[in-house]
Design a protein around this nucleic acid. Sequence first.
DNA 1: AGAGGCTTCCAAAGCGCTTTGGCTATTTTG
DNA 2: CAAAATAGCCAAAGCGCTTTGGAAGCCTCT
Lengths: 340, 340
Amino acid sequence: MNLKQLSHMLSLSQTTVSRALNGYPEVNEETRRRVMDAAKRHGYRPNPSARRLATGKSGMIGYVMPTGAAVDIDPHFVEFLSGLGDYARSHELDLALSPADADDEETTYRRIVANRQVDAVYISSPRPADKRLALVNTLGIPFIVHGRSEGFDFDYPYLDIDNEGAFHEAARLLVQLGHKRLALINGNERETFAIHRERGMRRALAASGLTLGERHIRSVAMTEENGYRAARRLLEEAEPPTAIVCSSLIMALGVVRAVRDLGLTIPGDLSLIAHDDVFPWLRPENFPVPLSTTRSSIRLAGARVAERLAARISGLEEGARGEVWPVDLVVRGSVAGAPV
Amino acid sequence: MNLKQLSHMLSLSQTTVSRALNGYPEVNEETRRRVMDAAKRHGYRPNPSARRLATGKSGMIGYVMPTGAAVDIDPHFVEFLSGLGDYARSHELDLALSPADADDEETTYRRIVANRQVDAVYISSPRPADKRLALVNTLGIPFIVHGRSEGFDFDYPYLDIDNEGAFHEAARLLVQLGHKRLALINGNERETFAIHRERGMRRALAASGLTLGERHIRSVAMTEENGYRAARRLLEEAEPPTAIVCSSLIMALGVVRAVRDLGLTIPGDLSLIAHDDVFPWLRPENFPVPLSTTRSSIRLAGARVAERLAARISGLEEGARGEVWPVDLVVRGSVAGAPV
DNA sequence: AGAGGCTTCCAAAGCGCTTTGGCTATTTTG
DNA sequence: CAAAATAGCCAAAGCGCTTTGGAAGCCTCT
C-alpha cells in the first residue's frame, strides 16, 4: 500500500493525503480525519527510502564505531546503547552504526553526512581538542557529545557527568577520614573524563595541603588485569597509599584481587572508592567488601542523549547547551579511617 | 556531484555511466575506463538514498534490539558487535540497530523488511522454536542465526559453537578426576545454548553412571550476583557438589566470591570450569586461581556472521548451511581431583 | 545485397514520497 | 457589491538513481 493507491482510494490527490498525514495546515480537518483513518485501517506506512530521498531525512541516529583487531569496544557502550535504544524506540528512530577504521574516522563521518545517512550523530569518549568535534561542527550535522572536550574556540552541545566533582568528593571524604597518601587508578589519560577526575582529586588534596605524586597515578585501559597491576605497583611501594580511587568497577575487581594477594585487607589497610556506571551484571554492593562508589547511570545518559538528539533533529533544541549531571557518592564498607 | 552532472560532463547518458560504474557488460571497455576515471577524479559517490529507492537494497545489516527498562543487553553483545563491525567496515556495510519492544519484536521485523531498511538480519540468543526464526524465514529476508534453535520443520542458516561438546568435555574431565557430585550454573534455561550445555553435561555424567539432580542445576541470568547466589545454595546443601561448571565468566566471579565467603578453597574443595567468550577486560587466567575454561571467541563469531551475511546478500551463499565451531577446553589451576 | 546478430549507447519510465505553484470556491473586507 | 483574502485542493516537478525497451551502427553470413 503506497501513497498513490491510498490517495486514489480516497479520491484525493497525493498532495492532500501527504499533507493530511504530515500535519500540514492547508487541509480540511474532516478530510484529515478521513485520511488518517483510512491510513490506519489499511496499515499505510510511508516508504522511508522514498521519504528519505525526497526530504533528505533518514530517521536515524548515527554512531561512528571505531573498529579494528586492536580496538576494544568497552562494555560501557552496551549499557549506553541500551538507554539510547530505549528512547529511540519510542520515537521511531533507528540507530546506524558505521564501523570505521580507528585511525581514520573522518572519512566515515564525511560519508555519512554527505550521504545524509543519519539525521544526527553522537560522539563518545571525547578527548581534549578532539578532531571529531571540530569535524562534525563544520559539517553542520546535529550532534551531541557524551562527555566533554576542551580547548576549542567554539561551544558545542554535550551531556557529561561531573567527573571532577565526583572525584573531588571521593577524595575529600578520604582525606577527612585521615588518609594522607592517596592514589588514583584512572582510565586512559588522553580522554577528558580521566583528566577531569584527576583534576577533581588533586583539588581535594590541595585543599588540605596534600598532593598526588606522579607515582600515585596510573592511567590505563579499564580492564581487570590493569587494575590488578596498577594496584600491586602502588601497594608494593615503600610508602604505599592507604586509599585508592579507581575509575571503574572492572578495574576495582583487579584492585581487590591485588589487595588479597598481598595479604592486606579492605578497609583495614586500604580504603577503596570506584566509579560505577551501573552495570546490571556487576554491582558494587556485591563486592567482597561492599564497594563505595561514585555512581552515575550510563544508561540514563544514553536515553537523555537520544532525547536531546531527537529534539535537535526536530529543531526543538538549538545552540551549544552543555548539561552536566551530578554524581552520587555512595559510601559503603570499603572506606574507613586511615590506618594509624 | 551526482550522476546527471557526471554524465553530462562526459557527454554520455546517465544510463551508460551508471552501467559503466556498476560493471554491466554492455559498455565499451574504454568508455568504462573513462567513466571510472572521471568518477574517481571528481569523487563521485552514488547517493545511497536514491540507489536504495531504485533498487531496494540498503547496504545495511540489521539487528532488532530488544529494549525496555527491564531488558538488559548483555555485555557479550558488544564483543560480538565488535567482530561484526570489523568485517562490515571492510565491505562498506553499515549496521542498523532497530530498537524494539521486548514483548513485540515481530512488528519491528515486519517493518524493517517491508521498508527494505536492511538487506539481511542476524538473530542472536535464539530459543527453541523461536518465533523470530519462523518469522524471518517466511518474510524471506536473508538472515543468519547466531546460535541455534530447535523444533522447526525447516532448516535455517546458523553459526553456533559446540556448546554441548564443550560442556561434555568439561564434565568428562571432572568425572575423570574423580568428581561424583557435579553442578551446573547455567544461563537462562529457555535459551538453546543453555539447553545444549546441560545436555552435554548430562551425557558426560551418564556415561559414568552419574546424574545431574534437579537441585544441582541453576538457570539464571548471567550476573555476578546470580553466580554468587547459585553457588551459595549449591555449596550449603547437605552434600555439596565438588565441582561446578558455569556458563559465564561473570557468574564465575560470583562463584569464586561465594567459595571464599564459605571458607572453602578452589580447587581444594571445589573444582570450577566456566565458559569464556573472551572479553578483553576480564580474563580467566587472572582469576585468584586461574580459571579453567571452555573458550570460544564471540568476536570471531561476529566477524564470521558478518561475512556470511555479506555472502548471502550478494547471492554467494545459499541454503540452510549450519556451521558449528569446536570449543577449546583450557585447563588451568581451578580444577583438581575430587576431595577424598 | 539483404537478413540477422552484436556491440554500444540513449531516452524515458519508474522507485514513492514531498513540495512548489496554481486554481477554484468561499468568505471577508472596505 | 466588487475586490481582496482565505481555505482547500490538485497537477506536476523534483529527489538521484536503476532499468526497460529501443535504436544506430557495424559485422557476419548466406
